[in-house]
Design a protein around this nucleic acid. Structure first.
Lengths: 340, 340
DNA sequence: TTCACATTTCTAAACGTTTAAGTTTGTTTG
DNA sequence: CAAACAAACTTAAACGTTTAGAAATGTGAA
């Protein structure tokens, strides 16, 4: 391993004390222009690169942001194959990098426990995306560092948050279906009881049905995982339910799986059954049919999360931010108008 | 901010010196069983979490692996929207996490220069995916830490590497097309001159054509970016070229864009034109047609990269590893047998 | 009991920074 | 010209670990 150039080497080269080097490096005032130049020259000449471990040790600043991403149930791999999360991550990384922060991605399921990692690494902030058990959030509170929750539906409104109005989005989606003549509306969703995004969207679905006095039929509700596989899997059941004229999949990835599965059993979209999704993930463009869906701005979600966490680090002001980003329906090709 | 529990606190609690605590924490021998238990009890009681910054400072070990991912040309966002990279990243993260390493993802385009970041953070290892300018690799050499290149086609075989035989993969793909009666074979590819994955796959394409004495026609080569948009874009040109019976897209993401574009101008796949891809990305399942493609094991690529970098960190043995993973053709629905 | 030696524990320096407090130097003012 | 003050710079402690090497303790043989 190469010998490291330290602040001492620079001090010797520039003929000043190490404190002065530190002041110059950190752009603090009280250093004469002339001295600063001498120091800068020495830094350049020796190619001095400060050691962030040392800095972190004394100043408790690491320039590291933890990003918590949901994990698959089976093997606890991060859900990075799910386009929603990779799009989100990309946005977060991009906006954090601009301000010289790096991110450490991870699930909550590490042997130590997440809080330990935060403390170990002196993380400056945390961005959490998705739902987790209450104890997890309790732990985060203890860490007492700037934290932004994204789509977490944490009962405790202690943290900053950015999210969308999932319930409303699902409501307008369902309403749109009803207004297009559909009455037998299925829903494919994740676990409803958990009180997260899936539950909220389910509630929005019910809101719309109630508003139009359409009964909520239990066998029209298909509950499982929010992933492509479940979409495919559920298609078989749906194909048996002849009354259904449309299905609301609470996430695009589900909708895509569903359509794939439906087609494979000879059902045409939207002629035989209509499908509407939620999220407007980038990758759904791949699909041959334009997916009608509720659009949310995933990039902006990541950007906001990054901005808030950084702001919260720099400013002492503890004004909590709870941002709700807008949603809108995007009409493409997978929902057919139905004439009664 | 909370007061940190340090090794001193534990030492006081357990009634031993801080050195002993350190030995216990790091599982070094020479500590009596009895003492170790006393220490463990104290650690648990106080909830002691070692400070990795401090550890890194003295031991030069950070448990941090840098992962370099290509960036988009325009705005330098990481290419995480490209499913190949997110799949790869997921695999790397999963395998690194098992051994208690965290990763810091980044592009090469950070104001400091990548090497600076490596030094700043005392990174233990680096995984690079994709092609970069020679100077970048020269820089990495200077860093002198375990490094694994993935799909980098670095002329200098100084580093560990994991890749596939891209040329051969493209060769068997093209050969498969020829054997199915195709003679006018288009290719949609990235920049050919750069000498990376795109070039290699282009070479494999030429290899097969040569073997069967089929002339290489310049206007059958469509060069652009390796992304979904270019696939769509190029469809128009391809649709004008009436002789083409099949197109080899050197990446699935291109193939998917291409098919989408082709369909939008009324061309049916595979009836009018066949398409073959490369990579077998997970997300292509979404597509309604099964994409015939050259399969590589992206998960294993990430796994191997992670394993090699960790092995290289732990063992002093400097035996260089250059791993080439197998490829195989996966026949699905997008290539039609052509009867002459 | 004493000595030699092995085992366990401790002391203290080192890692590379930041920063409060102190010192020096320079400038202004009565 | 000295006093007062501001500006620029330095000293030294602190951050929380690891790890040689020293010290203490324990064990067994003569």
């Amino acid at each position: 391993m190469n010998k490291r150039v330290t602040i001492k080497d620079v001090a010797r080269e520039a003929g000043v004390s190490i404190a002065t080097i530190s002041y110059v490096v950190n752009k603090k005032e009280g250093v004469r222009e002339e001295t600063a130049e001498k120091v800068s020259a020495a830094i350049k000449k020796l190619n001095y690169i400060p050691d962030l471990s040392a800095r972190s040790l004394v100043s408790n600043r690491s320039n590291l942001i933890g990003v918590v991403i949901p994990q698959t149930e089976e093997d606890k791999e991060l859900m990075l194959k799910n386009p929603f999360y990779s799009e989100f991550l990309s946005a977060v990384e991009y906006n954090l990098r601009k301000n010289n922060f790096q991110l450490i991605i991870s699930g909550t399921n590490i042997d130590k426990g997440y809080l330990d990692m935060v403390v170990e690494r002196n993380m400056d902030g945390i961005i959490v995306v998705g739902m987790y058990p209450d104890e997890f959030f309790e732990d985060l509170k203890k860490a007492n560092i700037p934290t932004v929750l994204v789509d977490s539906y944490c009962k405790d409104h202690y943290f900053h948050s950015v999210q969308i109005n999932d319930r409303y989005g699902a409501y307008i989606a369902t309403k749109y279906l009803i207004e297009n003549g559909h009455e037998n509306i299925g829903i494919v969703t994740g676990k409803i009881k958990t009180g997260g995004v899936a539950s909220e969207r389910y509630l929005g679905y019910k809101d719309a049905l109630k508003e139009f006095d359409i009964p909520i039929i239990e066998k029209n509700v298909f509950e499982g995982n929010v992933d492509f596989e479940f979409g495919i899997q559920v298609a078989k059941q749906i194909s048996k339910n002849k009354e259904l004229t449309v299905v609301f999949a609470i996430a695009d990835i589900l909708a895509l799986g569903l359509i794939k599965g439906l087609k494979s059993v000879g059902i045409n979209i939207p002629e035989d059954i209509s499908v509407i999704g939620f999220d407007d993930i980038y990758i759904s463009k791949i699909f041959d049919l334009g997916l009608t869906t509720v659009k949310q701005d995933i990039y902006k979600k990541g950007q906001k999360a990054a901005e808030i966490v950084m702001k919260s680090i720099f400013e002492k002001s503890k004004t909590k931010q709870e941002i709700v980003l807008p949603v809108e329906i995007v009409i493409r090709e997978t929902v057919k108008k139905r004439i009664k």
